[in-house]
Design a protein around this nucleic acid. Sequence first.
RNA 1: GGGCCCGUAGCUCAGCCAGGUGGAGCACCCGGCUGAUAACCGGGGGGUCGGGGGUUCGAAUCCCCCCGGGCCCA
Length: 1061
Amino acid sequence: MGRVKGRLEEAYDPHKVEDYVHKFWDENSIYLKVKEKSSKSKKKYYFLDGPPYPSSNTFHIGTAWNKTIKDSMIRFFRMKGYNVWDKPGYDTHGLPIEVKIEKELGLKTKKDILKIGIDKFVQRCMEFAKRNVEGLTEGFKDLGVFMDWEHPYLTFKDDYIESGWWMIKRAHEQGLLEKDLLVHHWCPRCETTLADYEVSEYVDLEDPSIYVKFKLKGYDDKYIVIWTTTPWTLPANAFVMAHPDIEYAEVEVNGETLVMARSRVEKIMEEAGIKDYTIKKVIKGSDLEGLEYTHPLEDEVKAQELLSKYHRIVMAPEAVTEHEGTGLVHSAPGHGDVDFEVARKIGVPIVSLVGDQGNLLDGAGKYAGIYFREANKYIIEDLRRKNALLHESTIVHKYPVCWRCKTPLLLRATEQWVIKVSKLKDKLIKEAETVYWQPEWAKTRFINLLKNVRDWVISRQRFWGIPLPIWVCKKCGHIEVVGSREDLERLGGKVPENLHRPWIDGVKLRCPKCGGEMERVKDVTDVWFDSGISFYASLGYPRNKELWNSLKPVDFITEGHDQIRGWFFSLLRSGVITFGSKPYTRVLVHGFTLDEHGFEMHKSLGNYVEFKEVIERMGRDIFRWWAMMTTTWEDMKFSWAGMEKVKRDLSIVWNVYNFALTYMSLDSFDPVNNSIEEFSETLKPEDKWILSRLHRLIKKYEGAMYDMKPHEAARGIRDFIIEDVSRWYLRLIRRRVWVEEDTVDKRTAYAVLYYILKNWLLLAAPFIPFITERLYRELVYKSGDGYESVHLEDMPSYKAELISDEIEESMNIAREIIEAALAARMKAGLKVRRPVKRILVAPVSRDIVDKIDPFRHVILEMANAKSLEIVEEGFIESQMVRSVEPDYRGIGPEFKQKSRAVVDLISRYSKEIADAIVRNGYYVGKVNGEEIRLEPRHVKIRADYPDWLSVEPSKVGLVAVDSRLDKSEILEGLAREIVRRIQFMRKELKLGIEDDIMVSISTDDEAISEAVRAYKNYIMREVRGVEITGDPIQGYRREWDIDGAKVVITIQRVSDRNGRQ
RNA sequence: GGGCCCGUAGCUCAGCCAGGUGGAGCACCCGGCUGAUAACCGGGGGGUCGGGGGUUCGAAUCCCCCCGGGCCCA
């Protein structure tokens, strides 16, 4: 047999609660028990953690939100009986960490790294990552995230690297792996290519701005004009791009014909200082297609021997605008991205004439050996000499520089390893179509991206990353892609102690084709490579195939909307490359965390809030619930005020449970032997109402969680406990639990209250795991009911038969009436404490009458009325009394001097005059003995309710309070005034609710004395008085004023129920 | 420059997909309640629903354009 005996501190203190719960979880291994329970289930739920990047040991508020969403979902599915896979991960490789270590070690260039040794450098990177992983893990645990923190997946582990190799092998097997020339930004000082995301810094730089004439073949003195700020790329010119739809003009200048965009002519002529020019002809860009030209530096540049046969005008709308330049774009495919793409499309060879250190190569002929930016002046000089320079000036523009050494970058074609993802485009889209996205628009956005999918450059010339498992035969050029450590040994290699560079670099293989020695390509993979394979790599596939085969596919992933293009995409790409299918089925996209004004939070902007501060000032549950209530996929504006509000809500939750605990333990309520099923016959309508509300909540909650709308569930539990339970149900059952005797009615109320409060804890547990644990321990576990921890519970399912539209509608009507009645009382100045005789309701429709019935008692109690009368529509209005007021504009001109007397008459016989005028249209009266006739123009007719009737409209009809009080109501009201004051004094003495008191009331007021006599028993019951006397007694004495009368009240504690003195 | 999202009271946000008299909380003012009490309840003031145009009997809601913010691309 159980019994409620839990206790709570007076007020909700989140830190006390959370410290207590953390300690409880730790000491009792609650996480392991939860996991163990869940692991027995056959229903699998594969959650995959998007691995955060450990660049520091603390995390952003957005990361906390991210993990809270994951934790809430995991907890829900565990409680729903799923066997949830919950391995967290960290994305540990990549350039950001390399750069941090370079800074730590004071290294400035790639050469410096080679100098201290790759082994030492990589070692430091690994230590750095491990250190931060530990810090982050502490933070996530502290937030209450129940994941497998003892066994996270770390992308730098050898096993993970091996899984990565396997994918590259899979790509190779399908003919998707290629070595290719690609244009990328290059730092000539660090001698490395930079990925797009690394090109983020720009400075204002002065460069030449030149207009160059290319002579058209087959014409005399006819030239096309191009514009460039990078003259050093001219030696590598292969063709010229034009827009088919732009108009071009043939401009005559000094006997030469120059071709340029029509819209640019004036601008260019002005810039070049040419006043004397004529537009001879306007043609469409498409007319230029295929025209061949002669390169002005043909004789100076060796590479032009190859390139000259491609010199012609090519249509490339994507490369040409009319905003700047000449509408004719010089194209050097080895040094420009669009140029490169176009060259690829039309089959022009890619020639790059700049070497690793930024010097022009031999192919650049007379300019060979010159640093690229230095070469500009020689090239311009030669152009001028050859009469190919139309105009020369300089321009200051934003130019990208290396984010580490600030050297201006250049675009350069280099050989990189590529997976030809574009070949998989249709498959990618087809697979993506069958993924369920929340919200819907994320899918649209995702598919749009896939339509423009590009090949994937996986190689980086770096150190801290998964080494490319590609070996090339020095003798015959044969390529082997190694998919595992086993492959390595099979090909005659020795597995090194660590699969990273530089250890792997030393591994030589024997060529299976010619027996020659094979060496590894020195590159590592792109950072996106690592996290994209996590769906199988984190499970140890392909070494351990069973786990992935039993868990696949991933059932749930969630990350911010930046990951639509990021992780969600890289996972799909890897899934299609490896298994030919999508790796996940359901995706929830969440928003970003912005500052209070909707701007990005940045340390440099000064609007950054440390998550640690949120925990210190608020608490874990407060943050979690607040974050989970914001619409998941929308950006979240950070708000201290928003969290304060949640704190208030949690305080109310605390008070609700405190209320229940106090009374249930006082009455030794036994929830185990008083389950709600026992009381099905004695449920009052309000009990049925709250049960209906609860089950409606469960239904909505469950639907929201399965549909990945956790914010709807989080808001739902809030509205239920605050609006339905605290603000309403608790007020309705107070009187029932205050009675001392053990009544069925009281036990029914307890059983219902216990049932809804226990179930609410289960629903709320995924979101606010700390306070629910604490309350569960006190209310449920200590009562001998349930489990050791709320998180070991089973999530309730809704019972459709308990959801009643009728009872809820009835309650809504009752609440409407109560609200209107209270408003009417206020208008009449009637305190709620004083009872009124009756409330009248004139419903707008007759069907409301029956619906009011179940809650008559509720209306009477809440509005403090003796009776409720349903009256006919129109009855209340019929009580209105007509009267008139003088209308001076009508009276003055007619009655002149008699006006004042007429006004007197009107106010004296206001009602009679009103009736007469309404009935007959006029009223005849006497003023100074003289008969006068009043007509509508002399008065304003008004209709008012009588003083004793206060009326308030409501949605269900007019509600009126009859404020005429009989003596009995007056006396009862006075008795309640006395009670209130005694209660106040009890509170002042800090008496417990079980303490009994002796009361003395002395007053000269006749009515109050009578009220005390008449309601003695009532007063005694209400204030736990053992006796009420008019004689003076010892004790706490206080003088009061009740309706202007002096009342002296003295109270003295005698003993409590258990006889304690 | 393109794709997607957001913009509703002083503040934080529901309502929008399925058009039908604009809501909640906080803050402010007034009143009430008082055995959950540093709690609670009622009332009041406060809105060009970012701006403009269109569809419709009727638009916060659907369509188009613009402005501001966010993410991702170029």
